[in-house]
Every structure is written in structure tokens, then in C-alpha cells.
Amino acid sequence: MPSPPNAPSPAPAKVWILQPDIHHYRTPIFDALRERGHRDHAYDLTVLGGMNNGQAIGGGSRDYFVNVPRTELRPLGLAILYRWPTAVPTFRQHRPDALVMEANLRNLTAWKLLSLCRSTRVPVIGWSKVHSYSHSGRLMTALKKHFYSRFDRMICYGESSLKELTNLGYPPHRAVVANNTIDTRRIFSEGDRIARRADELLRERGFAGKKILLCVGRMDPEKRHADLLDAWPRLAALDPDLVLVLVSGGPLLDQVRARAASTDPDRILVTGRVPEGDDYAWIAASHACVYPGAVGLAINQSLAFGKPTIIADEIGADSEILVGQAHPDRQTGWRYPRGDLDALTAAVAAILRGGHEVDAVRHRARALMRDTVTLDNMVANIDAAIRAGLADARARRA
């Protein structure tokens, strides 16, 4: 029956996204989702997760962010487990109409929330890489099958995540791929301004006219900055104008900086953390970018700039957008076996030689990030999963 004239519109559904932490680089995604939900009054978004003194990790905040910190457990010194201590009480007090949460089977609270959502008929949508890099034994495979089967819908970080999820028996029609990315729109819209800042950085550092081999990434052991320092004598011999720049901070910063100073203080620069926007400027200034371990979202930035990008050959949703030289018709970068310094050196040498093959890879990578792996597409697919979950709930109530 149609609503009578002047009847109030139904209130938008309350949708929660529960993350381990709320990071500043996710804010544009959450803003865009919230705007989509408000556009037709379909839902109102709240984002919950760990924060730093009321701010997103990395800075900034929104009035729809709620601090729900995640803690770690290591029972008997075994594998790390997680929980959100305040998530269940918060759910009971302010029950949402749909919950999107990180689908991590090591999070004990996730199991509790799955049961709570089922008992309260709240649709729950998982958001996960599905640990597509892992090689599971029988027990872990059985746990994964049971865990993921309890989600009404799934948002996958990439095609490799979807493949593993469906191999675990999850119905493919209940899953969407939202390619993991960050907001790269400024790279395309503000290229001239970023290029000017890049020129300033090169002059400030005395690197004008040099060829920058750049690595942007937090200085943790899994990022393997030591591989670049170990390989530097071979890399330095490729071209006298080649210099190595390592950008970011982290627990190994002092160690990496000391090692760089003892290796080649004239041709290796360790910047530490840089001001907001200077990471983009360093990428714009680079001749090539290299990521020797734990590949993350920095490769999205490098590819968007059209910079020749080299990564350690790791399996998973974060790295799948970089197609290596084994597939020249689809190649968007260069891959090498992790830890193989000769192969790393060969990839850098191929880029330094240049030519139309390198140019083709650069243009293909930039087009991929401009047209396909975009924030708008990521948001649209997450939005579609949220709306499908809400529709599932309405159908169950009908």
C-alpha cells in the first residue's frame, strides 16, 4: 500500500563500518560512502575503530567516527589474536541496521558479533583480503569455511581474494570486489602543482638531474629496506646518476639511516617522515619506485603517476594490480622473487635502459589507476554490498 500523502519518510538505515583502526587515508572513502547513503536517504554511516586522541590514525576526524579500539592477545605465547573490547556493548546499546566489519577469524569479537547479528537479524557484511597469501592446513581451511559462511555478504579487496573465498565454498553472487585503493584523484587533477614541489625537493637535496630510485614505506622488518641497501653496490654501478631515496618513518628508521650513511652517504637519502603531500612529490620526482616487501597501497600511488614500479613477487590482493613482465600484453610493472637481489638489479637495469617497452608499461599502469582502480569504483562496490545487505534484511522481514 502506498504511503499516505505527507507521510514522513522512513528514517535512513543505521550502517556501521567496524575497522581495526580508522586511518586518515580511508577518510575520503568513508566520506563518499556517507554521501551516497544520504543522497537517497538509504542509510546513515558511522565508522568505528581505533583512534588516536580523537583523531584518525595519521590525523583528521569526522563527527561520525567513534573510537572502538582493538587490542591484541597472545595466549600462551602462540599466534596473535584480537578483540574489540567495547564493540559488543556498543552494539547492544545502539544496534545498527547493518554491520560491515573486518572479517578476520583471529578476531574473537568478530565471532561474537556474527552470533549477535544472527540472533538480532542484523545483516553482517565482511570486508577482507581473505588472507589470500596464506597456505592453510586442513584445520585452518575448515575454520575459514565456517567463519566466512556466516557473513550475509562479502566485500573482497581484489580478484585473488574473491577466488580464495569462492574456493572455500562462499556463494560468488553474495560477494563483490572493491579493489583496494586510496584517493589518487589529486595525482591526475593537480599534476602541475605536485611536479613543481618535486622540482623543489630535488633542488633542496642537491639531486637535480639525478635519477631517483624511490621506496616509500614504513620502516618495518617486513618491508625489507635492508634488501635495497644490500643491493646498492650493484644498483649504483648501473648508472652514476642513480640515487636511492627511502621515505617514511617507523621502528627501524634509525637503523636504516645508520646503515645508509655507512653504505653511501652521498647517493642514499633516508628522509624519515615527510610533510603531508611530499610523498606524492617524491614519487613525481622519481625515475622508478621499488617495494621489496609487504607490498601496500604505495604502489597505487606509483602506478597512478605512471612511474616504473618494481615489487617483490608476493601473492595477494594488494599486489595483484601490478602485472609483471611474464605477461607483457598486460604488464603494469616489474616483479622479482622476494630477496633475489640479482633479479631486483636486473629489473632496475631494464627500466634504466628505457625504450618503448617501458613507456608502454607506464602508460598502461596510469590508465589502470585512472579508469579502473579508482576511489569511485571502490566506493560504488562497497555501497552496492551495503544496499544488498539491507535488501536481504527487508526480504527476511517481509
Rank of each mutant, 00 (worst) to 15 (best):
R338D: 09
P171D: 09
N179L: 12
G355C: 05
Q55L: 13
N167A: 15
R95M: 15
L105W: 10
L246S: 05
R366V: 09
I57P: 00
H24G: 08
T345V: 08
I310E: 00
P240T: 13
D239W: 07
H23G: 02
I22R: 01
G389E: 03
L113Q: 06
M1H: 10
A298L: 02
L246P: 03
R397I: 05
T263N: 02
R396V: 04
K307N: 08
L344P: 01
D183M: 08
P96R: 05
A226D: 13
D152V: 00
E222K: 15
T141R: 15
A288D: 03
A226F: 09
T109K: 05
I283F: 03
P89W: 10
R203C: 11
E159S: 11
R83V: 00
E276C: 01
L202N: 02
D227K: 07
L228M: 04
G137R: 06
G59F: 06
V323R: 13
L81N: 04
P5Y: 00
M369S: 06
L18R: 05
P221Q: 12
G158I: 02
T372N: 12
R83D: 08
R153D: 08
A11R: 12
E320F: 12
L322G: 05
G60W: 01
N6Y: 00
S3H: 00
S302E: 03
G191F: 07
H327M: 11
G77M: 05
G191V: 09
E200H: 12
D220A: 12
W111L: 14
T263L: 03
R362Y: 04
H41D: 14
G191A: 15
V245F: 00
D183N: 13
F207T: 11
E357S: 13
V348Q: 06
D63A: 13
P8R: 10
V88N: 01
R196E: 14
A294Q: 14
A103P: 02
L228F: 04
G293Y: 07
P240F: 05
P75H: 09
Q19F: 05
R106H: 13
R224Q: 14
D97Q: 06
H94F: 13
V256I: 15
L214E: 07
E190A: 15
F305C: 09
C289V: 14
L143V: 12
H94D: 13
W282T: 10
N67K: 04
D152M: 04
